[in-house]
Lab assay of single mutants.
Amino acid sequence: AVSDRLIGRKGVVMEAISPQNSGLVKVDGETWRATSGTVLDVGEEVSVKAIEGVKLVVEKLE
């Protein structure tokens, strides 16, 4: 699937994400809805860990 190529890629949070609410991330110039187990603020760099349906699962870049 086209989304599989995104796993491991870096992105930037465009709309804040929390465990309760999905947000938006931009990866390779495309905007995706994303979820995370932690709070991520706009502008934070993330990496794509998995894909669930049409949402990316991301975590903060260390």
Rank of each mutant, 00 (worst) to 15 (best):
L6K: 03
V27S: 02
E30R: 06
E59N: 07
V58S: 01
V42A: 07
I7S: 03
E15W: 14
S18C: 07
S3G: 10
D4V: 13
R33G: 05
M14H: 06
G43T: 07
R5M: 12
R33A: 09
E15V: 11
V57R: 13
D41M: 15
N21G: 12
E59W: 14
G43E: 07
S3C: 06
E52K: 07
G37L: 15
L40D: 01
K10C: 06
E30I: 07
A16F: 14
V12G: 02
W32P: 00
E45C: 07
D28T: 06
P19A: 09
V13M: 03
M14G: 03
I51H: 05
T35K: 10
V46M: 03
R5P: 10
G53M: 04
M14S: 07
G8S: 04
V58Q: 00
V46A: 05
V2P: 15
S36D: 01
E44T: 15
T31S: 09
E30G: 08
K10I: 09
D41Q: 15
E52M: 09
G53S: 05
V27N: 00
D4P: 05
A34I: 01
P19Q: 08
L61M: 10
R5Y: 15
L56K: 00
V58M: 03
G29M: 11
I7N: 03
N21M: 11
I17G: 02
A1L: 11
G11W: 01
V42E: 06
E52F: 09
L56A: 03
V12D: 05
S3L: 10
V42H: 05
E44G: 04
G23H: 01
R5E: 12
P19W: 08
A34S: 04
P19I: 08
E30Y: 12
V2M: 10
I17V: 08
L56P: 01
V46I: 14
K49H: 08
E52D: 15
I7A: 03
D41N: 11
V2W: 04
L24V: 10
K10A: 07
V13P: 00
L24H: 08
S22H: 12
L40S: 03
K60C: 04
D41V: 11
L24C: 07
E15N: 09
K26M: 14
V57S: 05
R9Y: 13
R33C: 04
V42R: 12
V57N: 04
S47R: 14
E45A: 12
V48D: 00
L56M: 06
E30C: 07
V46Q: 00
L56D: 01
L61R: 07
T31K: 09
A34W: 01
L6V: 06
G37N: 11
D41A: 13
R33T: 10
T31Q: 06
K10P: 10
I17D: 01
W32I: 03
M14K: 07
V48I: 10
V27M: 04
K55W: 10
E62C: 08
A16C: 07
M14F: 12
D4G: 08
L6Q: 03
V48S: 01
Q20P: 14
K60E: 03
S18Y: 10
L61V: 12
M14R: 06
K10G: 06
V13G: 00
G11F: 01
V57M: 07
S3T: 14
R5C: 09
V27C: 04
L24K: 10
K10H: 10
E52H: 11
A34H: 01
L6P: 04
I51G: 03
T38Y: 15
K26D: 07
S22R: 04
V2C: 08
V46D: 00
V58P: 00
I17F: 03
E15R: 13
E59K: 06
K10W: 11
R5H: 08
I17K: 01
T31Y: 09
V12S: 09
S36T: 03
S22D: 13
E44P: 00
R5S: 14
K10S: 06
L40T: 03
G37I: 11
L6I: 06
L56I: 07
D28K: 05
K49A: 07
G29T: 06
E59T: 11
L56W: 02
M14L: 13
T38D: 12
V48W: 00
L40C: 05
G53K: 04
R33F: 12
G8L: 03
Q20W: 15
G53W: 04
V48Q: 00
V48N: 01
R9N: 05
S18P: 04
E45M: 13
T31R: 05
S3F: 06
L6M: 07
G23E: 00
V13S: 02
D4S: 11
V27Y: 02
V25Q: 01
V2K: 04
V57Y: 13
E45R: 10
E52W: 13
E59L: 12
V2A: 11
G37D: 11
E52R: 09
V12K: 07
T31E: 13
V25H: 00
A50P: 01
S36Q: 01
S36I: 01
V13F: 00
V13L: 03
G43I: 02
L61S: 08
R5Q: 13
K60S: 07
G11A: 08
L24D: 03
W32H: 06
V39A: 13
I17P: 02
V58F: 01
I51E: 02
V58T: 02
V25I: 06
S18I: 12
V48E: 00
K26Y: 14
